[in-house]
């Protein structure tokens, strides 16, 4: 193992993280997969009344990008944000309860799938507006710099957001003010139905970084180690006070954009090809190959994740609904002036 830590032929993640952290990372990836499948199943059973944006296939990007973050560090997330929450150690029961619109949910049933947040873990929340979280992440980084907390903000966004004005304004300001923020683009190739090829002038979104004088790299977003290597470097740079970076994780969502998606813009072959590149299978193989886990232990991790999700769903289903008469609670701070 000591050799592996210095051998550059050994993947970065294996060299950098302890076996326990790597096991935990795979466990989280299973949790994300099982969460999304559980959400889909619950939706099918009529337990969830809103829509949802599933991130099955993008688990390595979510978990890998958060490996070097502490609870002090912040993330901002997107409408496809369940994985980010899990990666940032969210409570699965509270997540499902929110999904079910229950008072015990993260947002007490007021937010739903697109607004799950956990400020105590540094998760500033998913966002229903494409590009909505970008300036907010820059603001969080501004606070960190101004208050000297040393915290870094990882700003998740999708390929669709890179064409929003907020993206450009945010990258520019972060660079001008040298703020500790890492922009992580999860490029799953489609903004709803519109492919990056049809919507984006540059071939890789990471190329945009040059316009804002920051490093920009593109990595295989389904390769846990590659993601971790790129984001960790960007986080370290931010912590050193050298300013923002842009990391582009190339990945793919197996499911449609949302439950209304009829998948008319992608071929079955394309989807099948990406499913062959399952990030969880790859991560499992990585850990088995490096003798961190046995096949049986991988199976046990998956089983454990499935159990946790079942319990989370049971907790959510048994939780109380919010009171109708409290529908207008929390618009303003209670007892505040005026």
């Amino acid at each position: 193992m000591a050799d592996a830590a210095t051998d550059t032929n050994t993947p970065y993640a294996i060299r950098t993280y302890s076996p326990q952290r790597l096991k935990d990372a795979l466990h989280k990836m299973f949790l994300i997969r099982k969460f999304e499948e559980g959400a889909e199943d619950s939706y099918t059973r009529g337990l969830i009344h809103g829509t949802m944006h599933l991130s099955i296939g993008q688990e390595a990007s979510a978990v890998g990008s958060c490996m070097s973050l502490s609870d002090e560090d912040k993330i901002t997330s997107t409408h496809r944000g369940h994985g980010h929450c899990v990666a940032k150690d969210a409570d699965l029961g509270k997540m499902f309860a929110e999904f079910f619109g229950k008072e015990t949910g993260y947002c007490k049933g007021r937010g739903g799938s697109m607004h799950i947040a956990d400020p105590s873990r540094g998760n500033l929340g998913a966002n229903g507006i494409v590009g909505g979280g970008l300036p907010i992440a820059v603001g969080a980084a501004l606070s960190a710099k101004r208050l000297g907390t040393g915290a870094v903000t990882v700003c998740f966004f999708g390929d669709g957001a890179n064409n929003e004005g907020a993206f450009h304004e945010s990258l520019n300001m972060a660079a001008v003010w040298k703020l500790p923020v890492v922009f992580v683009c999860e490029n799953n190739r489609y903004g709803m139905s519109t492919s990056t090829a049809r919507s984006t002038a540059v071939k890789q979104i990471a190329e945009r970084a040059a316009a804002y004088s920051m490093p920009g790299v593109t990595v295989d977003g389904n390769d846990f180690s590659a993601v971790t290597e790129a984001v960790d470097a960007a986080v370290a740079r931010a912590r050193r006070g050298e300013g923002p970076s842009l990391v582009e994780n190339m990945t793919y969502r197996w499911r449609g954009h949302s439950k209304s998606d009829r998948n008319r813009y992608r071929t079955k072959e394309e989807i099948a090809e990406w499913m062959e590149r399952d990030p969880i299978v790859a991560m499992s193989k990585l850990l088995v190959d490096h003798k961190i886990l046995t096949e049986a232990e991988v199976g046990a991790l998956e089983e454990d994740a499935a159990r946790i999700i079942r319990e989370a769903i049971d907790f959510a289903a048994a939780s109380p609904d919010p009171k109708i008469e409290e529908a207008t609670r929390d618009v303003y701070t209670e007892g505040a002036a005026a």
């Binding site: 300036p135 907010i136 820059v138 520019n172 300001m173």
Partner: peptide
Amino acid sequence: TDRVMDTPISELGGAGVAVGAALTGLKP
């Protein structure tokens, strides 16, 4: 200039930065 900050001509981004800063401990 750290506390009286000229922003770029970026109303959307600037307002969003203020929102993010307010969420995380500053009073912009």
